[in-house]
């Protein structure tokens, strides 16, 4: 890609990544939202985090990997336990990173 194409790519990607975040807020901030839509949207957060969690743990390299070689599955266990017990993002993150570093050096 030449220099101009790279800049066009950057601006193009900027438009299509920022518009979907700004426009719905601009639209619904000035209008009533149908109650059913509001209810439906209240399930978006748990659904999207369920999907992101599953994909990040079980497909670390872009493909489903349920083998015991998948370190993400092993790191998931202590991280989930600490998350459920502590309900603290920071502590959960800390234990997750530490578990992964440990696994990497011991097994990986």
């Amino acid at each position: 890609m030449n220099d101009l194409s790279i800049w066009l790519m950057i601006f193009g990607v900027a438009v299509v990544s920022l518009a979907p975040r700004i426009l719905p807020v601009a639209f619904f901030s000035r209008r009533e939202m149908p109650p059913l839509l509001e209810k439906w949207l209240s399930f978006v957060a748990p659904a999207v985090l369920g999907a992101l969690t599953a994909v990040s743990i079980l497909t670390p390299a872009g493909k489903i990997d349920l083998s015991s070689d998948n370190l993400y599955i092993w790191a998931f266990i202590p991280t989930l336990a600490v998350g459920l017990k502590s309900k603290s993002i920071f502590l959960t993150l800390f234990v997750g990173i530490l578990s992964m570093a440990f696994l990497y050096h011991v097994i990986g």
Binding site: F43, A47, S56, Y72, A75, G83, I89, G96, I97, M100
Partner: peptide, 28 residues
């Protein structure tokens, strides 16, 4: 593992209703 760990902890916190768990599991 920073982002996966973050997803896990946010998932735990954003699930309140029983139906949230179902929505999360089915989405997964």
């Amino acid at each position: 593992f920073a982002l996966p760990a973050m997803y896990i902890s946010l998932l735990i916190m954003l699930v309140r209703r029983k139906t949230d768990i179902y929505a999360a599991l089915v989405a997964a």
